[in-house]
Structures are given as C-alpha cells and as structure tokens.
Design a protein around this nucleic acid. Structure first.
Lengths: 112, 112
DNA sequence: ATTCGTTATATTTGTCAATACATAACGATA
DNA sequence: TATCGTTATGTATTGACAAATATAACGAAT
C-alpha cells in the first residue's frame, strides 16, 4: 500500500491562531444558521467550545469576523461580516491549492 | 502586523502516522548519537516516549528504518538503515518545498 | 559468572484539556 | 413587567495523555 502525505495549514496573527479547519467550519455553520448556538449544535460541539473558538477568532483578527447580538427578537444571533467571508474564501483557496501541491510531491516517495 | 500561514505535514501508511517533524528529529538524533537513549536525552524527552515513537515508525514503514541491537559491547545501540535515511531526505525536501509554496500563497491574504 | 549500558515493557502518578452543568446578562416584544 | 432564546461566563467533573518510576532482557567482554 502506498504512503500518503497529509497536511494541516492555519493562519496566525501575532502568534495566535486566527483560522484553521475547525474555525472555518464553525464560521460556515454560523453563516448557515444565523446563530452561534445553532451552529454549535450542527457541529456537535458544546456551545462553550464554539463560543471560545469564535471569541478567539474575533480577538485575533484585525477586523471583526462576526457581529454578535444579545437579546431582542429571537434572543439574539450572530452573522458573518464581509471581512469574515473574505477570510473564509482565502483560507479555502489556499488550502485547496496546498492539497494539489502535495499531490504532486507524492511522486517523490512513490518508490519508497 | 501581517498574518502568517503555518503548516504541518506528515506521511501516513495505512492510516498510521509514519513520519512527522518530531519523528524526523528523533531519527536524526539517533543518526548523530548511535543510540536511542542518547537521542532521547538530546531531545529532552523520556526514553519511553522516544522508544514508542521509534517503534511506531518501524511498525508503520514498509521496511525497517532503524536497526536496534540489545546487549553486547556498549550495551547495544540503534542506527538508521539506508531506507530510513532516504525517508528523512524525502520528508525534508517535501517540507521545504511546502514552506516555499505557502510563502507564495501569502500574497492572497496580504490585503486582509 | 559478573558487569555494563543499552533496548524493551509494565505500572503508577501527575497534569492538562475537554466536557458537562449551571447561571448571569441582554433587549425586543407582548 | 414577564417571557424568550440567545450570548456570555464560571465551576466542577471527567478522561485522555504525558511523565515518572521500576524492572526485565539482552549479549559481548572481562
């Protein structure tokens, strides 16, 4: 059976993690559901973990990635900013390209 | 301050990790010291952890990566096989290329 | 046979992180 | 003002992983 090359990439800001695969999943789930609590349920993670992740993202980013509102109609909610959407697009693009790149590198260990 | 892209790559065999950065460090230390126990000391990890890592490497690889000897002159020792050396070279090469690749991708988030 | 430094392994202990649980704060609406 | 489903936190418990400790097995050399 052949060896495989796996990878993980992430974006850091001042030595803090800004975006990784898990955080991107969370942001996409927020985009789909309109709230952090619904997003956490859809990802099968605790609300607290989701909140900590999102808090970390917003604290690491140069500009807000989500707008969170407490109380009011529906109890509140969370939605992505345009900046947040562009971050996700950039991450996904780089990640896909990285996979393609490593796929080519696979040649180098095919004979091993 | 600008965002940074970080990455980690590893080689898998049958869903088991074969080589990552830590394992490569260990193999290089074995190459330099001639024994697993000396290698573990030079990396400041316990002998047990080093042994578990090396055991996992040898069990995941298609061919032996090290030759370990017990007892005898000097008490024994461990040394890399030619196969192990070529694995290290391939990993380092791919890893370096991946860094260079991601450095180019950095353009895409420069404006964010 | 004894010694030696190593590889090899089991067992216990400690540490850290994830999880679960609980609760406060909020503000539009009725 | 009472209600509602959120966001926002604190606290306690659990569980997985790391570390420490201990010891067996080995075989060349003396």
């Amino acid at each position: 059976m052949a060896y495989k090359i796996k990878s993980r990439i992430w974006i850091e800001s001042e030595n803090n993690v800004l975006l990784g695969e898990g955080r991107v999943h969370l942001l996409k789930a927020i985009q789909n559901t309109g709230s952090l609590s619904k997003a956490s349920k859809s990802l099968n993670i605790s609300y607290k973990k989701a909140w900590q992740l999102l808090d970390s993202v917003n604290k690491s980013a140069k500009k807000p990635v989500t707008i969170n509102s407490i109380g009011g109609k529906g109890g509140g909610g969370a939605e992505l900013t345009d900046y947040g959407k562009s971050l996700i697009l950039a991450f996904d693009d780089i990640n896909r390209n990285c996979w393609a790149f490593l796929d080519k590198q696979l040649e180098k260990i095919k004979s091993l």
